[in-house]
Nucleic acid binder design. Structure first.
Length: 1119
RNA sequence: ACUCGGGUGGUGGAACUGGUAGACACGCAGGACUUAAAAUCCUGUUCGCAGUAAUGCGAGUGACGGUUCAAUUCCGUUCCCGAGUACCA
């Protein structure tokens, strides 16, 4: 009986599906274990071999933990909001929901082929309204919470309001607060909310009319099209992650992340401790000396981590954007400063990164006074000082900071040396270990110690204070895109109002086009009826107010609704006739509403899907004033995309058929604009008055992924994001596996969200991931062919010539001439080359990616290549070396366009999922990045077949038996148990695979076919190769399913030996082995060793200096 | 530039706290079975030198140096590769 992996794997995958063996319950007496993978973005190109690496590792560990008696949660889902689907929609018009759905089903079928133990009942998708309802809900929690600095903890914002109302704050009294307008109060609160909105800079591309992400901007121009990009201020949402900087830092000590991962997060947070010092400013003009600024004691505040260098300050540098710049510029320097500012502005639009660092700057004409020695210090502006960090101003110490040094040299500013011989005048020395000189009261102190001394003095004088700074910025949380969670926010007269929880989810409406709004807003902005919720007065009231609805209130909107209702009751006979004909989708299958308010207007009939309005005009429409009004309203509605058709009462009475015909025609002419559900005008209104609009941005990709690990615990709950019982049971993710690319983004955000939810008492832990394992990237190994172009050949008919790699390389290096290549071409196609004029012909060789799947190692499979790309190379001529066409090789990122992707489906089809799983693990440590190479997969496949042959033989069939196992066999088994358990526990899956190979090799050698041994081996192996083990377990007739078998227990007694082969070194060099009983003591061993022939040979009759004997390890004889 | 990883046969990699460097596999070479192929099995495979051979000797974990009876492992200097950050005061 042969190992028919295709049949076996199909059989067991179906079996698992039918019996639901991977269903996980939230109730169990067993201890819990939560294994999580970073869920994938379902891209259009499907899985390649890089994706499953981490999934296989987590699957092995989950299955292992299950065998060890844990209730294991190992879910999978999809991070299905994101830009690629939207871009695809922009190009093809296909709705992102459609393509996403399609991609997910491809992903799922690919994942299932690998045999993962996911509980698909717990699958989640971030783009599913049932899911993003809760993303929006958590956003609302963030919106209505603030960070209490004294308690370092998230609290509901109403507690802050209460405090303001009763006690006021640093900046205002309770009375003042209570006197603030609603809008003023909201502005104050916005500065404390955890999710808040402010004006921020975005990359705006005029030509594309859209906002671009940072990575869509390359060298100052758009990646697509190369159009110029500029900074533009727009209202944006942010998360106040900076408030959590310290807790995010401290939390790192409580989790098991790799050192590099922790380091990356620490760097990103970038905490630095230093001081803010303020300096008095004076301006020196030709005519006078005066102080700057609106008040005489306007001061310049700088941030420094080195207050000890205060006497080495030779100049100040202020960021060009600094608010003081205009005030402190002297008349003499005004033009120079203006020129410099315009230069900086022009440059900020360009990408500064690419170019060599230039030293630029400009003197302002102002000075600060060193408070300790009264020295006047010039103030400069320069672009190397960033407005966004610290105070946007620095004190420059050229002898201690290389940038300051270069700046001083460039502008000939004299440099003060405060560190004596430690400074050589050639470059700055940033040491903290120098003894200070030229430093007044700090003289003679070690810089390290002087930091505190200086700081204390500064605080004592009241000119500065200790200050901790963070490099991390608040996280931008809005995107001007379509395919993301809509914000549950309504802007009313400039105040952000949250939706009520009952109104969630705020579903993403359908749009026609995915292009940006007029002002660069997201595509949602184009849906005026969805966006504009401004309540409107009734027509009667509007008659007296030209700009009526702008000042309307809830009351007025209610009146509009009431008015419409009234109109319905008081319908004219003609209106009724038309309604009877239109209702219930009788015309063109379209739904009509009657007397339905649109903004301020109440049309007689409207079909929202087709944006068609039908008006039945009574006699009073002949009135001039009414006509004016009708036209005005028609124009306004036209602007909103509505077309209006009008009929008179007479037409309805006399020619209803024609009227209906015309309506039908109008419906058919209009295209469908909205899905019915989206067009319902919301009835919300929570009134500050003024313009009421929905937020049109959507949330970024990381919104949904910041809390998904919680949803898996309780995925179907419609009452809450995750029941507290469920999150208490599953608690933290015990093992999280994923790539390093999310080191700072996703991981920091989800850590922050967890802390917020914890503080608000919604979950019981404040770090989401207990242990993080980083999987390496699997790179593609690209293959190249080299195509020869002959220029000026004057011959038109021949296939392309392809030259093998080594010849190409020699040509490139100039080792061979073009004549030699022409000669080679001549050999493969003599009649072609005879027509070429050697002297005039030029040679060009281009390197082309070739599909790795038609290359065997590095040798091109020529016949398959001819068929490749629909026969583009059918007539190619090959210039070979040693009869082979050798391809060029390079390691690159795996991508379709480079033809270096390897599809797991094909490997599963060819070798089976078990082989594929084990081979991915065998490739090397999970954490390591490595290029994919399919070559070695045969070895793993051979191993599985060898395993199979321990149970069955091709001819004889079943050969396993129930004989009693020998000691030697038990020894092999228990060595394996020990090693596999150790290796699996420490995620060393590659060595575990090799341990299995050793075990099977040894059992084969022992001709062991005993159930007693093999059964145990199957349990060990089932996490790695679940299909073949399930099948063989079944064949052995063992009880139950191998998935829940009890894990074999290692018995150390079986491995106890009485003797050991000791390696014997002489002077640390291995010379021989001696078998010794284990109980021996040093002296006994020495005696035996000295007897040894080889040792005696090396001793050459001299006594050894020393003999080192390490029990159970080795012996070293020192001569 | 800074921070963090990592350099081991022809290749992927192993050696977990200093103690037999190269496990396991790929590839390659030779052999068995076979008309042949596939499959399977066996032998060899770090390099150099000597030997028919068993074997012996020498070198060897990027380079140089140190600590140690003993270093891939610890320390110092240096080179190369990868990842992250980027004028952060």
């Amino acid at each position: 009986m042969e190992y028919d992996f295709r049949k076996i794997e199909q059989k067991w995958q179906a079996e698992w599906k039918n019996t639901g063996v991977y269903k996980v319950s939230n109730e169990s007496t067993r201890p819990k274990y939560y294994v999580l993978d970073m869920f994938p973005y379902p891209s259009g190109s499907g899985l390649h071999v890089g994706h499953p690496l981490g999934y296989i590792a987590s699957d092995i560990y989950s299955r292992y933990k299950r065998l060890k008696g844990f209730n294991v949660l190992h879910p999978m889902g999809f991070d299905s909001f994101g830009l690629p689907a939207e871009q695809y929609a922009l190009e093809t018009g296909q709705h992102p929901a459609t393509t996403t759905e399609k991609n997910i089903s491809t992903f799922k079928s690919q994942l299932d082929k690998i045999g993962f133990c996911y509980d698909w009942d717990r699958e989640i998708r971030t783009s599913d309204p049932g899911y993003y309802k809760w993303t929006q809900w958590i956003f609302l929690q963030l919106f209505s919470s603030y960070f209490c600095n004294t308690q370092q903890k998230t609290k509901p914002i109403h507690e802050l309001v209460k405090k303001y109302e009763t006690k006021g704050s640093k900046n205002f009294t309770a009375e003042q607060w209570n006197g603030f307008s609603k809008k003023e109060q909201e502005e104050v609160l916005m500065n404390r909310r955890l999710a808040f909105s402010k004006y921020g800079e975005v990359n705006w591309c005029e030509a594309l009319g859209t906002v671009l992400a940072n990575d869509e901007v390359v060298n100052g121009v758009s990646e697509r099209g190369g159009h110029p990009v500029e900074k533009k201020k727009m209202r944006q949402w942010y998360l106040r992650i900076t408030a959590y900087a310290d807790r995010l830092l401290k939390g790192l000590d409580t989790v098991e992340f790799s050192d590099s991962m922790k380091e990356m997060q620490r760097n990103w947070i970038g905490k630095s401790e230093g001081a803010e010092i303020s300096f008095r400013i004076v301006i020196r003009e030709a005519s006078k000396v005066h102080t700057a600024g609106p008040t005489p004691d306007t001061r310049l505040t700088v941030y420094t981590t080195r207050p000890d260098t205060i006497f080495g300050v030779d100049f100040m540098v202020v960021a060009p954007e600094h608010e003081l710049v205009a005030q402190i510029t002297s008349t003499e320097q005004k033009t120079a400063i203006e020129e410099y500012l315009s230069y900086v502005k022009s440059r900020s639009e360009r990408e500064r990164l690419a170019e060599v660092k230039q030293i630029t700057g400009c003197f302002t004409g102002a000075y600060t006074i060193n408070p300790f020695d009264g020295r006047e210090i010039p103030i400069w502006i320069a672009e190397y000082v960033l407005a966004g960090y610290g105070t946007g101003a620095i004190m420059a110490v050229p002898c201690g900071d290389q940038r300051d040094f270069l700046f001083a040299k460039h502008f000939n500013i004299p440099i003060t040396n405060i560190i004596g011989t430690q400074y050589n005048g050639e470059e700055a020395n940033a040491t903290k270990d120098a003894i200070l000189e030229n430093s007044d009261f700090l003289n003679g102190l070690l810089m390290k110690d002087a930091i505190v001394v200086a700081l204390n003095k500064i605080e004592e004088l009241g000119i500065g204070k200790k200050k901790t700074n963070y490099r991390m910025r608040d996280a931008g949380f809005s995107r001007q895109r379509y395919w993301g969670e809509p914000f549950p926010i309504i802007w009313s007269d400039g105040i952000a109002l949250p939706l009520d929880a009952e109104e969630l989810p705020l579903e993403l409406p359908h749009v026609d086009t995915y292009g940006p709004g007029r002002e660069g807003e997201g595509p949602l902005a184009n849906l005026t009826t969805w966006v504009d919720l401004t309540p409107n007065p009734s027509p009667k009231e509007r008659g007296t107010k030209a700009t009526g609805y702008l000042n309307s209130t809830t009351e007025e909107w209610k009146k509009t609704i009431a008015f419409a209702k009234q109109n319905r009751k008081e319908a004219t006979v003609e209106e009724d006739i038309v309604w009877q004909a239109l209702r219930d989708r009788q015309v063109a299958g379209c739904r009509f509403r009657r007397q339905h308010p649109i903004a301020g207007y109440i049309p007689d009939f409207v079909c929202l899907e087709k944006k068609l309005i039908v008006e039945i005009d009574g006699e009073y429409h002949d009135n001039e004033e009414q006509k004016l009004f009708d036209t005005g309203r028609e124009n306004w509605l036209k602007g909103e995309g509505f077309t209006t058709v009008r009929f008179t009462n007479d037409e309805v009475n006399n020619a209803l058929k024609t009227v209906l015909k015309e309506i039908e025609q109008a419906l058919l002419n209009n295209k469908t604009v909205l899905k019915e559900a989206d067009s319902t005008p919301p009835l919300l209104w929570r009134g500050a008055g003024g313009e009421v609009k929905r937020e049109t941005s959507t949330m970024p990709g990381y919104a949904g992924s910041s809390w998904y690990f919680l949803r898996y615990m309780d995925p179907h709950n419609t009452l809450t994001f995750c029941d507290r019982n469920a999150s208490n049971y599953w608690n933290q993710v015990d093992l999280y596996i994923g790539g390093t690319e999310h080191a700072v983004g996703h991981l920091l955000y989800s850590r922050m969200w967890t802390k917020v939810l914890f503080d608000l008492g919604l979950i019981g832990f404040d770090e989401p991931f207990k242990k993080l394992l980083n999987q390496g990237m699997i790179q593609g190994s690209s293959r190249f062919v080299y195509r020869i172009e002959i220029l000026n050949a004057a011959v038109d008919d021949s296939g392309p010539f392809l030259i093998s790699y080594n010849l190409y390389n020699k040509w490139k290096l100039g080792e061979i001439t073009k004549e030699i290549i022409f000669n080679k071409i001549n050999q493969v196609s003599s009649d072609y080359i005879s027509k070429v004029d050697y002297d005039r012909a030029g040679l060009m060789i281009s390197q082309l990616h070739v599909d790795v799947n038609i290359v065997d190692g590095i040798e091109l499979k020529i016949s398959e290549f001819r068929r490749w790309k629909k026969g583009e190379y059918l007539n190619a001529e090959f210039i070979l070396e040693d009869g082979k066409y050798i391809c060029g090789v390079e390691t690159e990122k795996m991508s379709k366009s480079k033809y270096n992707t390897v599809n797991p489906d094909e490997l599963c089809e060819k070798y089976g999922a078990d082989t594929f799983r084990m081979y991915e693990m065998f490739l090397g440590p999970v954490e390591a990045s490595k290029p994919w190479d399919t070559k070695g997969i045969e070895g793993v496949h051979r191993f599985l077949r060898k395993l199979w042959r321990l149970f069955n033989e091709d001819v004889k069939g079943k050969i396993w038996n129930k004989d009693k196992a020998s000691n030697a066999e038990l020894k092999v088994l228990h060595r394996t148990i020990k090693k596999i358990e150790e290796d699996t526990e420490r995620f060393s899956f590659n060595t575990a695979v090799s341990t299995f190979m050793i075990c099977v090799n040894e059992l084969a050698e022992l001709k062991c076919h005993k159930k007693e041994i093999l059964e145990k081996l199957l349990i060990l192996l089932t996490p790695y190769a679940p299909h073949i083990t399930a099948e063989l377990w079944n064949q052995l007739g063992s009880d139950g399913t191998v998935l829940d078998a009890s894990y074999p227990v290692f018995d150390p007694a079986l491995l106890v030996e009485s003797t050991k082969e000791y390696p014997v070194s002489i002077n640390g060099k291995l010379r021989t082995n001696i078998e010794l009983a284990l109980g021996l003591e040093q002296t006994e061993v020495e005696a035996i060793v000295l007897q040894n022939e080889i040792v005696q040979k090396w001793l050459d009759d001299k006594p050894p200096k020393k003999i080192i004997f390490v029990k159970n390890k080795m012996i070293n004889v020192v001569i």
